[in-house]
Amino acid sequence: MTTVGLLYPGHAAEEDYPRMEVLLDSDIRLAVVHTDIGEDAHRVDALLRMGAADRLAAGVGTLGLEGAESVVWACTSGSFVYGWEGAHEQVRALALAAGMPASSTSFGFVHAVRELGAARVAVAATYPQDITELFTAFLKASGAEVVADRASGIVTAAEVGTWGRAEVLELARAGDHPDAEVVLLPDTALHTVAYLPELEEMLGKPVLTANQVTVWEGLRLADRRTWEAKLGTLFAKRW
């Protein structure tokens, strides 16, 4: 049994995780602990408070009892908002508090892009423009070339969590760019796991979504290799 611990802020699209658990190997478990979201706002000050060390540390005791072998802060905006160095410090503090390997969704995107061997990416974000630009800056700091970034202007995770298939497909379509080798949908509040095969078929290229790369990153940290074609190109081959 491999157990990945996920610290998820509030409630929005956490249903993606049991969906992935069913699709993955039967001895993989995804243990979700909900952290205090504080103010639900895609705004810099609110996101910095959401990702504060004390809020993340409050959930790690439960993950230890669950037998987690790794932990991922399952929030993109609440990690990249700290910048490249600050996000590294955030996961270092989380690893110390949890006593196990730790990462965040933001670094999951970085590592997944590298795993796919991609250099040029397009960002299709639900966020307001200023928050989208912070994610773009984070990706550029990792060495990726961002050829396009589209912001949708959504302020709250609660609203993002109401989006369904039509909105997700339109977001990806609008955010794609001919020069992009992969398209990134960075919000963990967005339900995407059910649409991964359709997204990739529609765009004709790999698509990375927040909840997908969060789980992949946790498995990577736990040194667990698995694959499932229904979870997109990232999971379509052994790595």
Score class of each variant (00 low, 15 high):
1 M>Y: 10
2 T>M: 09
3 T>D: 03
4 V>I: 14
7 L>E: 01
18 P>F: 05
19 R>N: 02
20 M>T: 08
21 E>K: 06
30 L>D: 12
34 H>T: 15
40 D>L: 05
41 A>Q: 12
41 A>W: 11
42 H>C: 10
44 V>C: 00
45 D>R: 10
46 A>I: 02
49 R>E: 11
62 T>L: 11
68 A>Y: 10
68 A>M: 10
79 S>V: 00
80 F>V: 04
82 Y>R: 15
83 G>D: 01
84 W>H: 13
89 E>M: 00
91 V>M: 12
99 G>H: 07
106 S>H: 01
109 F>W: 07
111 H>T: 10
115 E>M: 13
116 L>V: 09
117 G>L: 00
119 A>H: 11
120 R>A: 11
121 V>C: 07
124 A>Y: 08
124 A>T: 12
126 T>M: 07
141 A>E: 13
142 S>H: 09
144 A>K: 11
152 S>R: 14
154 I>A: 14
156 T>Q: 13
156 T>E: 15
163 W>A: 06
164 G>K: 10
165 R>S: 03
168 V>R: 13
169 L>P: 04
170 E>Q: 15
172 A>I: 01
179 D>M: 00
185 L>E: 07
187 D>Y: 01
187 D>M: 03
188 T>L: 04
189 A>G: 13
190 L>S: 04
194 A>N: 03
200 E>R: 06
201 E>N: 12
202 M>P: 01
206 P>Y: 02
208 L>A: 10
209 T>K: 01
215 V>R: 05
218 G>M: 05
221 L>V: 03
222 A>T: 02
227 W>T: 04
235 F>W: 10
235 F>Q: 06
